[in-house]
Design a protein around this nucleic acid. Structure first.
Length: 270
DNA sequence: CGCAGCGCCTGAAGGC
DNA sequence: TGCCTTCAGGCGCTGC
């Protein structure tokens, strides 16, 4: 992506009038000076001191267009001075394009409070444990918040918690658990990147390639199947408003002295 | 102030 | 067969 747009001038800009995307047409005439990813946000620095922030939501696809543009679900289209065309498709409109002054993210609270990049060196077990300890919310909510570590969504949260053998509703973790989860978050994201993403449903446009990580998931989406570590059937529930899968034998909710966690059957019905 | 829960949005899948 | 309901989820927002 970067090499396709870096240093180029936008000679044509169109965006869906929906407020989540309408900022996209304001970048006409601007030159792209840098392209950076932070968590799930893509930041394009422009030569007038603004920044175009792109989030793909669940179903967004940003790609360099081939000879024909698919109009269905088109949310943004940018043409550059060398003829390159960048398009944004997003069937569900969960994505977002926001134009801000460079580095000023008050309109994007999650971006402004984003945690460290999980694969960078400043994501340490010590810092992770400290950040987790600041709140008594359940650990899955904290992973999904983006504020403790960036870039973890529902799939990777379930995978990491399973790998670390931590119950998604645990609210306080021991040092050993923090270290396992730190490792597991890194491993889950590395695995996903290595396999070029997780493609669960076919929302891609005709020339979009799909990822392969869906074949490597050991927990997410496998409710009712045996745990590959212990053979117990994986269980489905809702945590933090999200579909959640965990192993009731490997990922046990411990009762703590304060009584703020209950180990009884919190597993979902059905 | 922190956090749980809701709404956005569309297509796929399941039920009757 | 076809209509209707449910589910999927990232994140901004609301309200407790």
């Amino acid at each position: 992506m970067t090499s396709h747009v870096l240093g180029k001038v936008v000679t044509s800009a169109w965006s869906d009038p929906h407020p989540r995307f309408s900022d996209g047409e304001q970048v006409l005439g601007r030159r792209v000076e840098a392209v950076v990813r932070r968590g799930k946000y893509l930041l394009l620095s422009l030569d007038d001191g603004t920044e175009m922030v792109v989030h793909l939501g669940m179903t967004g696809v940003l790609q360099v267009a081939g000879p024909e543009i698919v109009e269905r679900h088109l949310r943004g289209r940018w043409e550059f001075d060398d003829g390159t065309v960048l398009v944004l498709h997003d069937p569900r409109k969960f994505g977002r394009v926001t134009l801000v002054r460079a580095g000023e993210y008050e309109d994007l609270p999650t971006l402004s409070e984003l945690g460290p990049e999980p694969l960078e060196e400043d994501f340490t077990p010590e810092g992770f444990g400290e950040a987790l300890g600041k709140s008594r919310a359940n650990v899955k909510s904290k992973l999904l918040s983006q504020r403790i570590v960036a870039g973890v969504g529902n799939i990777y949260a379930d995978e990491a918690l399973w790998a670390a053998r931590i119950h998604p509703q645990a609210s306080s973790l021991g040092t050993d658990e923090v270290e396992r989860l730190h490792r597991a978050v890194r491993d889950a994201l590395e695995s996903g990147i290595e396999r070029r993403g997780t493609t669960l449903r076919d929302y891609r446009t005709a020339d979009g390639t799909s990822g392969e990580n869906q074949h490597s998931l050991l927990c997410y989406g496998r409710a009712g199947e045996p745990c590959s570590r212990c053979g117990t059937l994986l269980v489905s529930s809702r945590v933090a408003g999200r579909g959640t899968t965990h192993c009731p034998a490997c990922q046990v909710l411990r009762t703590r002295a304060g009584g703020d966690e209950v180990a009884t059957s919190e597993e979902a019905p059905e």
